[in-house]
């Protein structure tokens, strides 16, 4: 299971969990599994989040994720 860390504001949309375990091999599968388990997260995912895997922001939905990876959803960052 990949353990996905949510920012705490999302907790109330994910059954009060800040770490949600999901079965996933890629970032896409991870996001799909998250929203399948907790449909209330969908507006936030659709609005845009950044996915951090082992400290790197990953933009490729096909990028692999593994159970030992550190995975965080964080606010989408815009630069100047």
């Amino acid at each position: 299971m990949v353990k996905v860390n949510l920012w705490s504001g999302l907790r109330r949309f994910a059954a009060d969990q800040t770490v949600v375990p999901v079965e996933a091999r890629t970032v896409r599968e991870m996001l799909d599994a998250l929203t399948a388990a907790h449909p209330a997260l969908l507006p936030f995912i659709k609005a845009g989040v950044s996915v951090s895997v082992n400290g790197q922001i990953v933009t490729d939905l096909n990028a692999p994720v593994a159970p030992e990876d550190e995975v965080y959803l964080i606010q989408r960052i815009k630069g100047g």
Binding site: N5, W7, S52, N54, G55, Q56, E70, Y72, I74
Partner: peptide, 9 residues
């Protein structure tokens, strides 16, 4: 651990 969550490289 960064203040915003992930671990710094």
């Amino acid at each position: 651990k960064a203040s915003y969550g992930p671990t710094y490289n």
